[in-house]
Design a protein around this nucleic acid. Structure first.
Lengths: 186, 186
DNA sequence: ATTACAGTGTGATGTAAATCACAGAAACCT
DNA sequence: AGGTTTCTGTGATTTACATCACACTGTAAT
Protein backbone atom coordinates (compact mmCIF):
# COMPACT_ATOMS: atom_id res chain seq x y z
CA UNK A 1 0.00 0.00 0.00
CA UNK A 2 2.87 2.33 0.79
CA UNK A 3 4.58 0.93 -2.23
CA UNK A 4 1.50 1.74 -4.29
CA UNK A 5 1.36 5.26 -2.94
CA UNK A 6 5.01 5.82 -3.74
CA UNK A 7 4.40 4.48 -7.21
CA UNK A 8 1.75 7.12 -7.82
CA UNK A 9 3.60 9.87 -6.01
CA UNK A 10 6.59 9.33 -8.27
CA UNK A 11 4.41 11.16 -10.78
CA UNK A 12 1.80 13.14 -8.84
CA UNK A 13 1.99 14.17 -5.15
CA UNK A 14 -1.03 13.29 -3.02
CA UNK A 15 -2.43 14.30 0.35
CA UNK A 16 -3.30 11.53 2.82
CA UNK A 17 -6.99 12.14 2.24
CA UNK A 18 -6.61 11.93 -1.51
CA UNK A 19 -4.66 8.73 -1.32
CA UNK A 20 -7.25 7.13 0.96
CA UNK A 21 -10.02 7.97 -1.43
CA UNK A 22 -8.07 6.79 -4.45
CA UNK A 23 -7.05 3.58 -2.73
CA UNK A 24 -10.67 2.84 -1.89
CA UNK A 25 -11.33 2.31 -5.61
CA UNK A 26 -9.07 -0.74 -5.64
CA UNK A 27 -9.51 -4.21 -4.25
CA UNK A 28 -6.70 -6.51 -3.17
CA UNK A 29 -6.53 -10.01 -4.57
CA UNK A 30 -4.05 -12.87 -4.33
CA UNK A 31 -3.41 -15.56 -6.90
CA UNK A 32 -1.33 -18.73 -6.93
CA UNK A 33 1.14 -19.73 -9.61
CA UNK A 34 -0.69 -21.00 -12.73
CA UNK A 35 -3.92 -19.20 -11.88
CA UNK A 36 -5.62 -17.02 -14.47
CA UNK A 37 -6.32 -13.34 -13.79
CA UNK A 38 -7.87 -13.02 -17.23
CA UNK A 39 -9.13 -15.87 -19.34
CA UNK A 40 -9.36 -15.56 -23.10
CA UNK A 41 -12.98 -15.20 -24.19
CA UNK A 42 -14.19 -13.87 -20.83
CA UNK A 43 -15.05 -10.23 -20.11
CA UNK A 44 -12.17 -8.15 -18.76
CA UNK A 45 -13.37 -6.50 -15.59
CA UNK A 46 -10.13 -5.19 -14.19
CA UNK A 47 -6.82 -3.59 -14.83
CA UNK A 48 -4.22 -4.83 -12.36
CA UNK A 49 -1.44 -3.18 -10.45
CA UNK A 50 1.08 -5.86 -9.51
CA UNK A 51 2.08 -5.54 -5.86
CA UNK A 52 4.24 -8.66 -5.87
CA UNK A 53 4.80 -11.64 -8.10
CA UNK A 54 5.04 -12.13 -11.82
CA UNK A 55 2.49 -12.64 -14.59
CA UNK A 56 2.50 -13.19 -18.33
CA UNK A 57 0.08 -11.92 -20.95
CA UNK A 58 -0.41 -14.76 -23.41
CA UNK A 59 -1.98 -14.98 -26.83
CA UNK A 60 -2.78 -18.40 -28.29
CA UNK A 61 -2.77 -18.44 -32.08
CA UNK A 62 -4.96 -20.49 -34.43
CA UNK A 63 -2.67 -23.52 -34.02
CA UNK A 64 -2.73 -23.26 -30.24
CA UNK A 65 0.82 -21.97 -30.07
CA UNK A 66 1.43 -19.64 -27.14
CA UNK A 67 2.91 -16.18 -27.65
CA UNK A 68 3.86 -13.93 -24.77
CA UNK A 69 2.88 -10.33 -25.39
CA UNK A 70 4.42 -9.13 -22.16
CA UNK A 71 5.61 -9.98 -18.70
CA UNK A 72 4.59 -7.85 -15.73
CA UNK A 73 6.12 -7.75 -12.29
CA UNK A 74 6.17 -5.54 -9.18
CA UNK A 75 4.95 -1.97 -9.82
CA UNK A 76 3.65 -2.73 -13.29
CA UNK A 77 0.12 -2.33 -14.56
CA UNK A 78 -1.27 -5.08 -16.70
CA UNK A 79 -4.47 -6.22 -18.37
CA UNK A 80 -5.79 -7.07 -21.80
CA UNK A 81 -6.16 -3.35 -22.31
CA UNK A 82 -7.73 -3.71 -25.73
CA UNK A 83 -10.63 -5.58 -24.19
CA UNK A 84 -10.61 -3.54 -20.98
CA UNK A 85 -10.99 -0.16 -22.67
CA UNK A 86 -13.75 -1.39 -24.93
CA UNK A 87 -15.26 -3.63 -22.26
CA UNK A 88 -15.29 -6.61 -24.57
CA UNK A 89 -14.08 -10.22 -24.38
CA UNK A 90 -10.44 -10.99 -23.72
CA UNK A 91 -8.33 -11.90 -26.73
CA UNK A 92 -5.52 -13.00 -24.43
CA UNK A 93 -5.02 -14.58 -21.04
CA UNK A 94 -3.21 -13.15 -18.07
CA UNK A 95 -1.55 -15.93 -16.10
CA UNK A 96 0.55 -16.10 -12.93
CA UNK A 97 4.12 -17.32 -13.26
CA UNK A 98 4.60 -16.87 -9.51
CA UNK A 99 2.22 -16.37 -6.59
CA UNK A 100 1.01 -12.85 -7.20
CA UNK A 101 -0.73 -10.09 -5.28
CA UNK A 102 -2.56 -7.40 -7.21
CA UNK A 103 -4.70 -4.31 -6.81
CA UNK A 104 -7.77 -4.54 -9.05
CA UNK A 105 -9.30 -1.51 -10.71
CA UNK A 106 -12.73 -1.99 -12.28
CA UNK A 107 -13.37 -0.09 -15.50
CA UNK A 108 -15.94 2.33 -14.11
CA UNK A 109 -13.71 2.99 -11.12
CA UNK A 110 -10.97 3.86 -13.56
CA UNK A 111 -13.27 6.44 -15.11
CA UNK A 112 -14.44 7.70 -11.73
CA UNK A 113 -10.84 8.15 -10.65
CA UNK A 114 -10.03 10.08 -13.80
CA UNK A 115 -13.13 12.24 -13.53
CA UNK A 116 -12.68 12.99 -9.83
CA UNK A 117 -8.93 13.48 -9.64
CA UNK A 118 -7.30 15.47 -12.37
CA UNK A 119 -4.06 14.21 -10.90
CA UNK A 120 -4.99 10.60 -11.54
CA UNK A 121 -5.93 11.29 -15.12
CA UNK A 122 -2.53 12.86 -15.47
CA UNK A 123 -0.92 9.87 -13.82
CA UNK A 124 -2.63 7.45 -16.20
CA UNK A 125 -1.74 9.63 -19.17
CA UNK A 126 1.93 9.46 -18.24
CA UNK A 127 1.75 5.70 -17.80
CA UNK A 128 -0.06 5.24 -21.08
CA UNK A 129 2.35 7.48 -22.96
CA UNK A 130 5.37 5.60 -21.76
CA UNK A 131 3.65 2.28 -22.27
CA UNK A 132 2.98 3.31 -25.84
CA UNK A 133 6.60 4.25 -26.37
CA UNK A 134 7.74 0.96 -24.87
CA UNK A 135 5.49 -0.98 -27.23
CA UNK A 136 6.90 0.96 -30.16
CA UNK A 137 10.42 0.04 -29.13
CA UNK A 138 9.43 -3.61 -29.05
CA UNK A 139 8.04 -3.27 -32.59
CA UNK A 140 11.31 -1.73 -33.66
CA UNK A 141 13.23 -4.54 -32.05
CA UNK A 142 11.13 -7.13 -33.88
CA UNK A 143 11.52 -5.28 -37.18
CA UNK A 144 15.22 -4.62 -37.06
CA UNK A 145 16.93 -7.46 -35.24
CA UNK A 146 17.34 -11.20 -35.46
CA UNK A 147 16.78 -13.65 -32.64
CA UNK A 148 20.29 -13.41 -31.27
CA UNK A 149 20.26 -9.64 -30.97
CA UNK A 150 16.80 -9.60 -29.42
CA UNK A 151 18.03 -12.08 -26.84
CA UNK A 152 21.02 -9.86 -26.06
CA UNK A 153 18.83 -6.75 -25.86
CA UNK A 154 16.46 -8.39 -23.41
CA UNK A 155 19.30 -9.72 -21.28
CA UNK A 156 20.64 -6.20 -21.04
CA UNK A 157 17.30 -4.51 -20.42
CA UNK A 158 15.69 -6.98 -18.02
CA UNK A 159 18.32 -9.23 -16.46
CA UNK A 160 15.91 -9.89 -13.58
CA UNK A 161 13.58 -11.78 -15.91
CA UNK A 162 16.20 -14.43 -16.63
CA UNK A 163 16.20 -15.47 -12.99
CA UNK A 164 12.45 -15.77 -12.83
CA UNK A 165 11.13 -17.25 -16.07
CA UNK A 166 11.93 -20.39 -18.02
CA UNK A 167 13.80 -20.23 -21.31
CA UNK A 168 10.75 -21.71 -22.96
CA UNK A 169 8.80 -18.60 -21.93
CA UNK A 170 11.59 -16.26 -22.93
CA UNK A 171 11.49 -17.86 -26.36
CA UNK A 172 7.72 -17.32 -26.57
CA UNK A 173 8.31 -13.67 -25.69
CA UNK A 174 11.14 -13.12 -28.15
CA UNK A 175 9.29 -14.80 -31.01
CA UNK A 176 11.80 -17.63 -31.46
CA UNK A 177 11.47 -21.34 -31.03
CA UNK A 178 12.63 -22.91 -27.80
CA UNK A 179 15.31 -24.87 -29.62
CA UNK A 180 16.74 -21.86 -31.39
CA UNK A 181 16.92 -19.91 -28.13
CA UNK A 182 18.76 -22.78 -26.52
CA UNK A 183 21.36 -22.69 -29.27
CA UNK A 184 21.71 -18.89 -29.03
CA UNK A 185 22.77 -18.65 -25.42
CA UNK A 186 25.70 -20.93 -26.19
CA UNK B 1 -9.77 23.60 -38.52
CA UNK B 2 -13.34 22.37 -38.46
CA UNK B 3 -11.96 18.95 -39.17
CA UNK B 4 -9.65 19.31 -36.19
CA UNK B 5 -12.48 20.43 -33.96
CA UNK B 6 -14.59 17.49 -35.02
CA UNK B 7 -11.69 15.21 -34.36
CA UNK B 8 -11.51 16.40 -30.76
CA UNK B 9 -15.25 16.61 -30.29
CA UNK B 10 -15.57 12.97 -31.28
CA UNK B 11 -14.22 12.39 -27.77
CA UNK B 12 -14.90 15.55 -25.73
CA UNK B 13 -17.47 18.27 -26.53
CA UNK B 14 -16.17 21.86 -26.56
CA UNK B 15 -17.62 25.33 -26.46
CA UNK B 16 -16.55 27.81 -29.14
CA UNK B 17 -14.47 29.70 -26.62
CA UNK B 18 -12.72 26.55 -25.44
CA UNK B 19 -11.92 25.48 -28.95
CA UNK B 20 -10.48 28.89 -29.81
CA UNK B 21 -8.22 28.81 -26.82
CA UNK B 22 -7.14 25.24 -27.50
CA UNK B 23 -6.53 25.93 -31.15
CA UNK B 24 -4.32 28.88 -30.27
CA UNK B 25 -1.77 26.43 -28.83
CA UNK B 26 -1.15 24.99 -32.29
CA UNK B 27 0.66 26.37 -35.30
CA UNK B 28 -0.05 25.41 -38.90
CA UNK B 29 2.75 24.22 -41.12
CA UNK B 30 3.00 22.86 -44.64
CA UNK B 31 5.59 20.47 -45.99
CA UNK B 32 6.41 19.14 -49.45
CA UNK B 33 6.90 15.51 -50.35
CA UNK B 34 10.32 14.25 -49.16
CA UNK B 35 10.66 16.96 -46.52
CA UNK B 36 11.55 16.03 -42.95
CA UNK B 37 9.26 16.98 -40.06
CA UNK B 38 11.66 15.31 -37.66
CA UNK B 39 15.26 14.48 -38.37
CA UNK B 40 17.05 11.73 -36.50
CA UNK B 41 19.49 13.18 -33.99
CA UNK B 42 17.72 16.55 -33.73
CA UNK B 43 15.55 17.64 -30.78
CA UNK B 44 11.85 16.84 -31.16
CA UNK B 45 9.96 20.05 -30.56
CA UNK B 46 6.51 19.07 -31.74
CA UNK B 47 3.84 16.46 -31.90
CA UNK B 48 1.89 16.74 -35.14
CA UNK B 49 -1.75 16.43 -36.03
CA UNK B 50 -1.99 15.59 -39.73
CA UNK B 51 -4.58 17.76 -41.44
CA UNK B 52 -3.87 16.39 -44.90
CA UNK B 53 -1.20 14.34 -46.58
CA UNK B 54 0.79 11.30 -45.57
CA UNK B 55 3.99 10.78 -43.58
CA UNK B 56 6.17 7.89 -42.49
CA UNK B 57 8.06 7.38 -39.25
CA UNK B 58 11.37 5.79 -40.20
CA UNK B 59 14.12 4.16 -38.22
CA UNK B 60 17.50 3.55 -39.86
CA UNK B 61 19.36 0.60 -38.36
CA UNK B 62 23.13 0.19 -37.92
CA UNK B 63 23.49 -0.94 -41.54
CA UNK B 64 21.50 2.03 -42.82
CA UNK B 65 18.49 -0.11 -43.67
CA UNK B 66 15.22 1.78 -43.36
CA UNK B 67 12.38 0.43 -41.23
CA UNK B 68 8.97 2.05 -41.14
CA UNK B 69 7.56 2.17 -37.63
CA UNK B 70 4.29 3.68 -38.77
CA UNK B 71 2.44 5.61 -41.42
CA UNK B 72 0.22 8.55 -40.46
CA UNK B 73 -2.41 10.24 -42.56
CA UNK B 74 -5.36 12.61 -42.12
CA UNK B 75 -6.61 12.85 -38.53
CA UNK B 76 -3.67 11.00 -37.05
CA UNK B 77 -1.21 12.25 -34.48
CA UNK B 78 2.42 11.51 -35.04
CA UNK B 79 5.87 12.24 -33.67
CA UNK B 80 8.87 10.43 -32.28
CA UNK B 81 6.96 10.25 -29.02
CA UNK B 82 9.79 8.60 -27.15
CA UNK B 83 11.96 11.64 -27.76
CA UNK B 84 9.06 14.12 -27.50
CA UNK B 85 7.96 13.03 -24.03
CA UNK B 86 11.50 13.02 -22.70
CA UNK B 87 12.51 16.08 -24.74
CA UNK B 88 15.56 14.32 -26.09
CA UNK B 89 17.06 13.72 -29.52
CA UNK B 90 15.05 11.92 -32.19
CA UNK B 91 15.87 8.26 -32.73
CA UNK B 92 13.77 8.25 -35.90
CA UNK B 93 12.85 10.56 -38.73
CA UNK B 94 9.39 11.70 -39.73
CA UNK B 95 9.22 12.19 -43.49
CA UNK B 96 6.52 13.31 -45.93
CA UNK B 97 5.36 10.80 -48.51
CA UNK B 98 2.96 13.38 -49.92
CA UNK B 99 2.63 17.14 -49.53
CA UNK B 100 1.39 17.44 -45.98
CA UNK B 101 -0.29 20.02 -43.77
CA UNK B 102 0.01 19.67 -40.01
CA UNK B 103 -0.87 21.33 -36.75
CA UNK B 104 2.19 21.52 -34.50
CA UNK B 105 1.98 21.21 -30.75
CA UNK B 106 5.07 22.17 -28.76
CA UNK B 107 5.81 20.10 -25.69
CA UNK B 108 5.11 22.77 -23.12
CA UNK B 109 1.89 23.68 -24.92
CA UNK B 110 0.92 20.06 -24.63
CA UNK B 111 1.38 20.30 -20.87
CA UNK B 112 -0.38 23.62 -20.69
CA UNK B 113 -3.33 22.21 -22.56
CA UNK B 114 -3.51 19.24 -20.22
CA UNK B 115 -3.17 21.40 -17.13
CA UNK B 116 -5.74 23.97 -18.26
CA UNK B 117 -8.36 21.73 -19.82
CA UNK B 118 -9.26 18.57 -17.99
CA UNK B 119 -11.10 17.67 -21.18
CA UNK B 120 -7.93 17.78 -23.24
CA UNK B 121 -6.05 15.63 -20.79
CA UNK B 122 -8.91 13.17 -21.13
CA UNK B 123 -8.75 13.43 -24.89
CA UNK B 124 -5.03 12.69 -24.94
CA UNK B 125 -5.49 9.83 -22.51
CA UNK B 126 -8.02 8.21 -24.84
CA UNK B 127 -5.72 8.68 -27.83
CA UNK B 128 -2.75 7.30 -25.96
CA UNK B 129 -4.68 4.31 -24.65
CA UNK B 130 -5.85 3.30 -28.08
CA UNK B 131 -2.48 4.02 -29.58
CA UNK B 132 -0.96 1.70 -27.02
CA UNK B 133 -3.46 -1.03 -27.85
CA UNK B 134 -2.79 -0.59 -31.55
CA UNK B 135 0.94 -0.97 -31.00
CA UNK B 136 0.32 -4.13 -29.01
CA UNK B 137 -1.67 -5.58 -31.87
CA UNK B 138 1.18 -4.86 -34.22
CA UNK B 139 3.53 -6.71 -31.86
CA UNK B 140 1.14 -9.63 -31.85
CA UNK B 141 0.99 -9.59 -35.60
CA UNK B 142 4.79 -9.66 -35.83
CA UNK B 143 5.02 -12.47 -33.28
CA UNK B 144 2.34 -14.73 -34.64
CA UNK B 145 2.20 -14.41 -38.40
CA UNK B 146 4.44 -14.82 -41.41
CA UNK B 147 4.96 -12.26 -44.14
CA UNK B 148 2.06 -13.42 -46.26
CA UNK B 149 -0.49 -13.19 -43.46
CA UNK B 150 0.79 -9.79 -42.35
CA UNK B 151 0.38 -8.57 -45.89
CA UNK B 152 -3.19 -9.87 -45.99
CA UNK B 153 -3.97 -8.33 -42.59
CA UNK B 154 -2.72 -4.92 -43.66
CA UNK B 155 -4.58 -5.07 -46.95
CA UNK B 156 -7.76 -5.75 -45.01
CA UNK B 157 -7.14 -3.16 -42.29
CA UNK B 158 -5.79 -0.26 -44.37
CA UNK B 159 -6.68 -0.72 -48.04
CA UNK B 160 -6.24 3.03 -48.53
CA UNK B 161 -2.50 2.70 -47.87
CA UNK B 162 -2.02 0.50 -50.92
CA UNK B 163 -3.11 3.32 -53.19
CA UNK B 164 -0.77 5.81 -51.62
CA UNK B 165 2.55 4.16 -50.79
CA UNK B 166 5.02 2.12 -52.81
CA UNK B 167 5.44 -1.59 -52.27
CA UNK B 168 8.99 -0.90 -51.21
CA UNK B 169 7.64 1.11 -48.29
CA UNK B 170 4.97 -1.45 -47.48
CA UNK B 171 7.74 -4.04 -47.27
CA UNK B 172 9.72 -1.81 -44.89
CA UNK B 173 6.62 -1.50 -42.73
CA UNK B 174 5.77 -5.20 -42.73
CA UNK B 175 9.32 -6.23 -41.94
CA UNK B 176 9.89 -8.16 -45.17
CA UNK B 177 12.28 -7.61 -48.03
CA UNK B 178 10.98 -5.83 -51.11
CA UNK B 179 11.56 -8.95 -53.22
CA UNK B 180 9.65 -11.24 -50.90
CA UNK B 181 6.71 -8.83 -50.81
CA UNK B 182 6.66 -8.75 -54.57
CA UNK B 183 6.38 -12.53 -54.68
CA UNK B 184 3.64 -12.57 -52.04
CA UNK B 185 1.10 -10.43 -53.80
CA UNK B 186 1.20 -12.85 -56.74
C1' DA C 1 9.86 -43.74 -3.49
C1' DT C 2 7.76 -43.73 -8.12
C1' DT C 3 5.51 -41.79 -11.45
C1' DA C 4 4.60 -37.92 -14.21
C1' DC C 5 5.71 -33.79 -16.38
C1' DA C 6 7.85 -29.31 -17.36
C1' DG C 7 12.27 -27.66 -18.71
C1' DT C 8 16.44 -28.05 -21.38
C1' DG C 9 20.14 -29.43 -24.82
C1' DT C 10 21.45 -31.18 -29.29
C1' DG C 11 21.40 -33.50 -33.84
C1' DA C 12 19.12 -33.96 -38.53
C1' DT C 13 16.19 -32.08 -41.88
C1' DG C 14 12.99 -28.74 -44.08
C1' DT C 15 11.50 -24.15 -45.35
C1' DA C 16 10.47 -19.21 -45.39
C1' DA C 17 12.60 -15.47 -46.42
C1' DA C 18 17.10 -12.71 -47.12
C1' DT C 19 20.41 -11.57 -50.31
C1' DC C 20 22.50 -11.04 -54.82
C1' DA C 21 21.84 -9.99 -59.51
C1' DC C 22 19.65 -8.32 -63.49
C1' DA C 23 16.17 -5.93 -66.44
C1' DG C 24 12.13 -3.45 -67.83
C1' DA C 25 8.78 0.26 -66.45
C1' DA C 26 7.37 4.33 -64.38
C1' DA C 27 8.14 8.78 -62.21
C1' DC C 28 11.05 12.96 -61.75
C1' DC C 29 13.90 16.44 -63.01
C1' DT C 30 16.05 20.72 -65.82
C1' DA D 1 13.08 15.25 -74.95
C1' DG D 2 16.75 12.93 -72.55
C1' DG D 3 18.86 11.45 -68.60
C1' DT D 4 18.60 10.11 -63.88
C1' DT D 5 16.53 8.00 -60.22
C1' DT D 6 12.98 5.16 -58.08
C1' DC D 7 9.99 1.29 -58.39
C1' DT D 8 8.98 -3.33 -59.48
C1' DG D 9 9.26 -8.25 -60.97
C1' DT D 10 11.77 -12.54 -61.35
C1' DG D 11 15.54 -16.00 -61.17
C1' DA D 12 19.49 -18.24 -58.46
C1' DT D 13 21.70 -18.90 -54.16
C1' DT D 14 22.28 -18.64 -49.23
C1' DT D 15 20.92 -18.35 -44.47
C1' DA D 16 18.42 -18.06 -40.30
C1' DC D 17 15.24 -20.31 -38.14
C1' DA D 18 11.35 -23.82 -37.55
C1' DT D 19 10.24 -28.37 -37.01
C1' DC D 20 10.95 -33.15 -35.81
C1' DA D 21 13.02 -36.42 -32.86
C1' DC D 22 15.30 -38.04 -28.89
C1' DA D 23 17.60 -38.04 -24.39
C1' DC D 24 18.63 -36.20 -19.93
C1' DT D 25 17.50 -33.44 -15.79
C1' DG D 26 15.06 -31.34 -12.11
C1' DT D 27 10.82 -30.45 -9.85
C1' DA D 28 6.11 -31.42 -8.42
C1' DA D 29 2.34 -34.77 -7.20
C1' DT D 30 0.39 -39.12 -4.95
Amino acid sequence: MNQFREHIEAIVPLTDAEFELIYSHFSVRKYKKHQFLIQEGEPVKYAYFIVSGLVKLVYADALGKQHIVSFAMEDWWESDFGAYYTQSKAAMSLICIEDTEVLCLAFDDYHKLCATFHKMEHFFLMKSNFGHVGAQQRILSLLTTNAKERYAQLLKKSPALFQRVSKTMLAAYLGVSRETLSRLSA
